[in-house]
Design a protein around this nucleic acid. Structure first.
Lengths: 295, 295
DNA sequence: GTCAACTATTTGTCTTGGACAATATGAATA
DNA sequence: TATTCATATTGTCCAAGACAAATAGTTGAC
């Protein structure tokens, strides 16, 4: 697998991959006739594993020095998030995803949503489940196929639920999208659902909007805030740079909310940007806006 | 604006930007104290324009030699598609998209769907409209923002319509997805809608599934055919290669249907792959399958 | 023991200029 | 009008060096 594919698969830039090879001696891919790097599937899997551990706060220097068993051990360290209430149920769902039982999964989703209501459903059920699926994926317990299937069912659920809600007229008006290069839309749908039931007015724009277009959309649609979603795979520096660029081009009275696992690794707060690592924090943003504008 | 931001905004890689500067002398950005490139907004705008013309088939070498007025003139070249008979309605819709009138657009869509029925709606209304919007975009008459908004409304329409249909049990079972690198899902949704009303059983998998995973999914879900969608942007050679790879890995009795504007430029038929350039051809595939299997 | 400030180390991104293969163009031929 | 072949174009990759932002580790004051 050539370096460009590895970049796409792992989210590690070509520069990073090359500098790791130079500094740490891993990965040392084969070379083709042209002298270009060819990574083995084993190396790619290990890189993905390392990336996941990095997202959890570990440093590359340490991780790259470890051997396979140590890595796995480290992975298992976090593998058992102390069984929170309803943990058994999560395992149950994970099993459904693994066994491709679409119908059962769909049924269970609808039941759970009806039972707990949208806010609790999103925060206590779906968010942890997505995290668990990500872990399971990194441990190679399920594949992209299962993840896609899960994703589709969830999108379907949100779409149909949202379609049955009355037309929106609330405030604040919030533009939902992602920056170029970030193609995950599940986060946007979840935020849309939360905003709707909180009587806000979300404007869903879909993924991968260039910053100039976001600014134009915010202007045309007269939104009070722009909400961006970042997945773990999105490089932290790109996210930070993009947020700074956007802040500069957007009118000062338009807020910027940035959410998703991808921004958890941003340490330094960005001037004029509200970081929303957890769904709970979204409510704080919303409440603050309503207090500040007196609506 | 640093080079990483320009890459994100224009979709031109850092390597490409640097090599253009070296070869054609444009763009020649300022440098900061660190000696790193800083592009001006004017340069970025021009790069976006150049990229757009490239997508229309022009070559970089020519475009980068042109000055500002010549570029603009070239932009206007394709500016006037003669309005064919019965296109008044299309122009009408295009106007709605341009004016960001979400509510009116949504209303019109639902009315048209109810009036004409799903097959005619997809073939006679939506497919031409998508083509027109693509043209308008390449002529810079509307932006990515408008295109995203249109796309979202259409997705919403299909989702809600499909959600209200009874559970599917028909045949053939068809897996719907795209290859890695192809992220457009509208085509998949339209095919899903057509298949549902034709009493087939579509399994929507979402975009960008690696070939190995497609094979696994086809096996697990026991589908009779795999249907792939390609947009104009997808490189023809990649599409052809991908289809050949897939054909080799998939069981012989599983059909492959390939559709979308992206496959219209494939000249040579591919052994064991059914090319479906128009929606009409999908019905032929379906009918043929039903005759051959006697169901 | 806790917190702040300072120094050292780690780490990702950017730099240059050269190389090469895949693709597109254009000319010559069947 | 098609095919084939030579030529030109063009994007991606490579190497090794440099630098600043972020993080870790250390010291000192309270």
């Amino acid at each position: 697998m050539p370096i460009a594919s590895v970049e796409r698969e792992t989210g590690l830039s070509k520069d990073t991959l090359r500098v790791w090879e130079r500094r740490y001696g891993f990965p040392t891919p084969e070379r083709d006739a042209k002298g270009e790097r060819l990574y083995t599937p084993v190396q790619v899997r290990r890189l993905v594993q390392i990336k996941r551990l990095m997202d959890r706060g570990h440093r590359p220097g340490k991780l790259l020095a470890l051997d396979e068993p140590s890595l796995r051990a480290l992975d298992d360290t976090h593998a058992t998030p102390l069984s929170a209430p309803g943990e058994a149920q999560l395992d149950n769902w994970l099993q459904l995803v693994k066994s491709h039982d679409s119908e059962a999964l769909q049924r269970q989703f609808y039941r759970e949503l009806a039972k707990r209501g949208m806010p609790r459903f999103v925060q206590d059920t779906i968010a942890p489940l997505i995290a668990r699926i990500g872990e399971a994926w990194s441990r190679n317990e399920l594949g992209i196929f299962e993840e896609h299937l899960f994703s589709q069912h969830l999108k379907k659920l949100f779409r149909t639920t949202l379609a049955n809600l009355p037309p929106q007229v609330g405030s604040p008006r919030v533009l939902l999208t992602t920056l170029s290069g970030e193609e995950h839309t599940l986060g946007l749908l979840m935020v849309e659902a939360l905003l709707v039931v909180e009587d806000a007015y979300p404007v869903l724009l879909g993924p991968q909007t260039p910053i100039g277009e976001i600014v134009r959309a915010a202007n045309v649609k007269q939104v009070d805030a722009v909400c961006l979603s970042f997945s773990v795979a999105y490089p932290t520096t790109l996210a930070a740079q993009g947020l700074r660029d956007l802040r500069q081009m957007l009118p000062g009275d338009t807020e910027i909310w940035a959410g998703g696992y991808g921004i958890k690794s941003i340490r330094k707060p960005i001037e004029g940007v509200c970081l929303v690592p957890e769904f709970q924090d979204l409510y704080d943003c919303l409440a603050r806006w309503r207090v500040e504008t007196g609506s």
